[in-house]
Design a protein around this nucleic acid. Sequence first.
DNA 1: GCTTAGGTTTTG
Length: 784
Amino acid sequence: MPVQLLKIRKEQSETPLPSHLQKEDLKHLQEGCNHTNKYIQGIVVLSYPLTKLRDGTDFFKIVLQGLDDLCSRINSINILIYGEMAEDCAKILRHGDTFIVTGFKVIKSPTAREDGRHGCHLEVSEEAGSTIYVQTKMLQIILPCSSGKSQYIFSVAPKYVYTPLNQLKDGTIVNLYGVVKFFKPPYVSKGTDYCSVVTLVDPSNAKLTCTLFNGNPDSLPKIYKVGDIVRFHRIKIREYNGQMQGITSGGFASLTFDGTVGAPVVPRTSSKMYTFMDEEHKTIEELRVWAASNISVPGPAAKLSSVQPMLFFDLTCQLIGKAKVDGSSFLLKVWDGTKCPYPTWRVPVEAKDLEGEKVLLHQLRNLMVDILVYDNHVQLAKSLKIGSFLRIYSIHTKQASADNEDVSRIEFHLHGGTCYGRGIRVLPESNPDVKELKAFLESVDLAGSQNMESMSSVELDDTFSGFTDFESYSQRCQQLSVTVLTDHQHLKNTELKTVITSAAPQQYRIRAKLRTYKPQKLHQSVKLHCSKCNSLQEVPDGDEFDFILRQSAITASNPELHNTSWYDSEMWTTQDQKQRNIVIHFIKHVEMLAWPENTLLMVEGGTLKEVWKLAERFKCVIPVRSTEDDLELLDLSAPFLLQGNVKYYGCKQCSAPKPMTCLSSIAAEEQPSWDPTEIAEVLGIVLLQYVFVMRFTLVDGTGALNAYLFDYENFFQIPASKILTSSFLQEKMQMTMNMLCPPGRKLGDLPWLECFIKSYNVRDAMKHQVCYQIFDTTIAGDVL
DNA sequence: GCTTAGGTTTTG
């Protein structure tokens, strides 16, 4: 076959091209020159529909962008492909693929003036002796099952392209790796964000200084020391003072790794979603080895026992006390378990300003040192938690003797500014240096330095303040309401006695206590509601979905439905004994390269686990099966759409599913939002909404009634759609209910709830009943 | 949506 599809597998990171071939730069491409044994490489940025010429020959035109000079327009070139190759390419090629061609003809381009592309175009055909190599951008990754058995979990990852630091171009947004040569830990900038400056180097021997901003310091790279390795995604490259500079762009994300050869490869990140595969693992190991012999990593960290006067050093330590000094300086009292060999200074502060455990401050008085931090570091220092582990960068030791003393003492200053990476960083307990320090601190013998007597009054104070807090909380629950009305505040309260003796329908404002509620198992309160036919149903469990997926997997994928104008298809065969085929249809969209995980995909033949895995990695997943002439949704007892860990269902009664081609209209939008409501609509699905349905028994001393809570997200301020997959939200909801109706309390101790309720009539042939529903009510913000 | 900083020690 003249077109070779080169899939990159984990064991091969390089394109296996024949060795006699040499790469030709687009710049040097000229009509009439000899291009034997030369190849042209680029990214497919545009393709036209496959057509037939008058003589019946197939014809396919694509536009290729060179990798070398991404800004220059002349960097793109038209490729005209004829015959069987045209047909093959039309099937295989996707935007973003790397395309390599040899044996092409170079012809003067008649359209260069109009399209602004290269002055020549390439003609490619089997007759001309051309060969095409295509590198697809999606990867197949086989991961061993966590159980360690011989099964395999199948997973697809978006493939990122990483640019070496010597190939960065002004105005581009790129992904890259680098070894940290210099960094400033996140500090408060003069603008609205935290800032961190990071200088990277890599084996291309280029250097890149990046200025990173984010309102949340946790979103900046978690770099702890020079030599750490970072992976940046979507960093913007700009020219500044004649040098390339990196700066955060919209979707910036980073991973940071320990740079030590042999250390575990565990990414530090603030984002929950990231891709990290074997290939990346290998890259980190390679960079570690390179860095070990090519950049100077600082030696063992300084301890207080080894400080020298008049030097700068980084200290890893634990915070024991802190105190405000004046407007421009702040005191940190820290220790690292070793003793400074010189007399150290004591910064005088008022006892009431000193925060920290008095006993510990006293016990450690001979091992602790005072570090005075200035100016921009004050804000961060104030926010530090006592007991936390810190690395303080570039502390200045200064020797000075006070007027009233003979002996000179060492002072520790963290001066203002951020030169030389001066700053403070909190280290997590998982950090290996912290683990080591903790173990050491625990081994330090503090015997003999205890003095409990003077502490007793302080301890008493602490107990007392805790007691008053509880009292005030308890009083608040007694007097105020734990719920808030979101409307109709002008209405006056009505006693329950009046409510139950009045005719329905009506609306009331009431003040009552929650005697009890149903269901007690809160997860049972989540139902699916159809707003069209007003039906309520239970949320199907995973077994049902699994069964439907297995049933649909029996239908073989129809290859005629693969690779259309609006989606690219990829088929895999599982490596296990069953050899199942899984087909994924990636819906094309403009941002596919910068945001591969924003892709919506349709999957045929996947198992429950695989579909979940895909939903974790990609924006939306729709399970489908093939028919003769289109893809279609599965049975509506299965979710028709998965986004993250939320499963969206359609109403079986009200939906009239349409073929999947109807989705192409959304796919054609410039920036499709992939909103479930919108997707449901074009697919003829009436979306079921997750809702909490509960029965509250309310009492107020004059009477009692049962009121229904029917809530999508307003009452608990928790979306009903999220609760089943989040233990955090389940706990939050349980805590809220415990607050409204504390278990084991007498009625008098229950908090008041202010609610709106409406009464309504429920009639059938046999009986008539008045029911009540809570509305326009929410849990008070300070109760949550 | 924009800025912030843009490595190269304070002067307390």
